[in-house]
Design a binder for these strands. Structure first.
Lengths: 203, 203
DNA sequence: ACCTCCGTTGACCGATCCGGTCAATGGCAT
DNA sequence: ATGCCATTGACCGGATCGGTCAACGGAGGT
């Protein structure tokens, strides 16, 4: 890719990336027109091709960038060095919200790219995935000792359940197009209080 | 549309519908090629155009069919005449699973079509939506009296949470492409037991 | 005033693919 | 042998694809 892309004003870079995330997340790779990305970014197609020499290069850059961005925000918000489950979940959600604010379609793109079957890109995606995410999983070190929760609780099930709630909720919000950050944050605070009240052992 | 479509063997009809749901759920309307749908259905493009005279007609038919199908299965499984929340949720999930088995991409299609912005179809979609779903909401009559749950429970929050779990979980399963029905059903039985154990008042 | 530089673009390329059509094929019942 | 009809490959004109390029225009130096 053309290094001049990086000397663009940050907001213009972001506009281009977001446009890419949006179009690629809403269409299969081969049905995602570069012209549509350019238009969504507010630049000409020629200029888009000036920064990214071809479609595949843009796509794979977006993929790499999404992995980096996610890990960067998770780290910055301290998600990886918490041991308390609720703290980690809360920080993770806040981090994810910040990501969604800046790159609203990145999450959908990541999932879709992961399952993309087009032979032009799928191999590279899979390789890159294993490169990035194996490390990431190792970093998480949560304390899941039973005595902090109500007796007899199925802890893995609770964990999964909380994860699914977050996914399902955020997904619903994302579908709506432009999301109301304040409302999401309020919903999640309520949800967190709700969880603590339900799951945590009363002293 | 051509009435001959209905005299096809049921499985062939379903194959065509599923192909449509799949392609339209994975691409925006205007980036969804009819040729791709035909290929996914295992028929020629010409035959697809023989049954549906044009792309828009197929798209709107799929939309109508998805609404009808959902309501039909929900009704058949008795979701609308239950008053107990957990019963309704369990039946709803089983119904949804059956739907997902037969029309694996329909749910995604429904959501995507609802937010479709293409002027060629979006107006008709919105009109049809209001026609169908206003009625549907009226049918649900759940008993949410507090004394059946643990004291002090935030009932609307519990309801939302259960809904989000179902959405998030089913979404994750759908993303994987071909879904393992047995695993899903087992997961959901565990989840249901988990919920009852957590939320229901102990006698 | 002139020149250079360069971010940016409209116009353009050939190839492909689009939605949609149609004559022809081939299997089946008569 | 004939008629019927589901099904198709080949085809249509036009749109769109990924990608290129000459040229425009504003900023900065002289």
């Amino acid at each position: 890719m053309n290094q001049k892309f990086f000397s663009l004003p940050a907001e213009k870079q972001q506009a281009i990336l977001n446009a890419g995330y949006r179009v690629f997340s809403q269409n299969a790779y081969k049905n995602s027109p570069m012209s549509e990305i350019a238009m969504a970014a507010g630049i000409s197609k020629a200029l888009l091709f000036h920064y990214f020499h071809n479609k595949k290069e843009l796509y794979l850059y977006l993929w790499e960038k999404s992995a980096e961005t996610t890990i960067e925000y998770m780290t910055r918000f301290g998600c990886y060095d918490r041991t308390d489950l609720f703290d980690a979940m809360e920080l993770g959600t806040i981090a994810k919200l910040e990501i969604m604010r800046l790159y609203p379609d990145m999450s959908n793109f990541t999932v879709k790219a992961f399952y993309e079957k087009d032979p032009e890109v799928c191999l590279e995606i899979q390789e890159s995935y294993h490169r990035h995410f194996n490390l990431k999983v190792d970093r998480v070190r949560l304390s899941l000792e039973p005595d902090q929760f109500i007796p007899g609780l199925d802890i893995p099930m609770m964990y999964k359940e909380m994860y699914w709630v977050a996914e399902g909720y955020l997904w619903e919000m994302l579908q709506a197009g432009d999301l109301d950050i304040d409302r999401v944050e309020k919903d999640f605070r309520k949800l967190m209080a709700f969880w603590k009240n339900i799951y945590k052992r009363k002293e």
